[in-house]
């Protein structure tokens, strides 16, 4: 029976992959910057679906929250702030198109051949259905990973060179946090409010 051979995972993968790629291409060929932002939202949202399919539900939700809900709102804000009619649609010269498409096409060809080159990547996991639910729920594991406990590596032999408890992602996490803080301060500084100064230069 056809239905018996039916694979939801593949079907949804195809669906989300087509949406992701389709909206990305639509974004590329759209001149209107607001439309571009809209397509980008849809494309990134659909790729969150791919994340969910790959079992990375926390990252998928993160993608929706930070990328789609945060970054893109920021981006649309920027678009609206600069949305004068002459900047809404800016056409690209056809020469640039040809150049970019040729280069991009060859890059794509390169990447596609690379993608199917390694046999291990090509076949998928035949035992995917057998993966226990415990291994597939990664939220807590990620949380523990940040605090230095690799739940997924408990069975791995201890590396004597590592400080116990610090073998996870705590340090990168702190670095990224500080980085984010610095960036936010910097962005706030750059986008600070209007300053008026008298002719002598003193701030009024």
């Amino acid at each position: 029976m056809l239905l018996a051979a039916f694979d939801w995972h593949s079907l949804f993968f195809m669906f989300f992959a087509l949406l992701t790629c389709g909206f990305a291409v639509a974004m590329l060929f759209s001149d209107n910057v607001v439309h571009m932002a809209f397509y980008l939202i849809l494309s990134l949202g659909a790729s969150a679906g791919l994340f969910f399919l790959a079992g990375a539900e926390f990252v998928g939700a993160m993608q929706l929250m930070i990328y789609v809900g945060g970054t893109l709102v920021l981006l649309i804000f920027g678009v609206m702030l600069t949305a004068q009619s002459r900047f809404i649609s800016m056409k690209t010269r056809s020469g640039e198109w040809v150049m970019a498409l040729v280069l991009g096409g060859s890059l794509l060809f390169l990447l596609l051949t690379a993608a199917f080159r390694v046999e291990d990547w090509r076949d998928g996991n035949p035992n995917a259905a057998d993966i226990g639910i415990a291994e597939s729920k990664t939220t807590t594991q990620i949380g523990m990973g940040f605090t230095g406990v690799r739940v997924d590596r408990l069975d791995a032999p201890e590396d004597s060179t590592l400080v116990p408890g610090m073998s996870g992602y705590l340090l990168p996490f702190v670095i990224v946090s500080v980085h984010l803080l610095v960036v936010l301060v910097g962005a706030a500084y750059m986008a600070r409010t209007k300053r008026r100064a008298t002719s002598t230069g003193a701030a009024a």
């Binding site: 593949s10 993968f13 992701t20 291409v25 790729s47 399919l53 890059l107 990447l111 990547w121």
Partner: peptide, 19 residues
């Protein structure tokens, strides 16, 4: 029929990257 594999994801990733 053909389980989704890393390669399929790589294709989507490649398209996004190139675009």
């Amino acid at each position: 029929i053909s389980p989704v594999s890393v390669s399929h994801y790589l294709v989507v990733g490649a398209v996004l990257f190139v675009v």
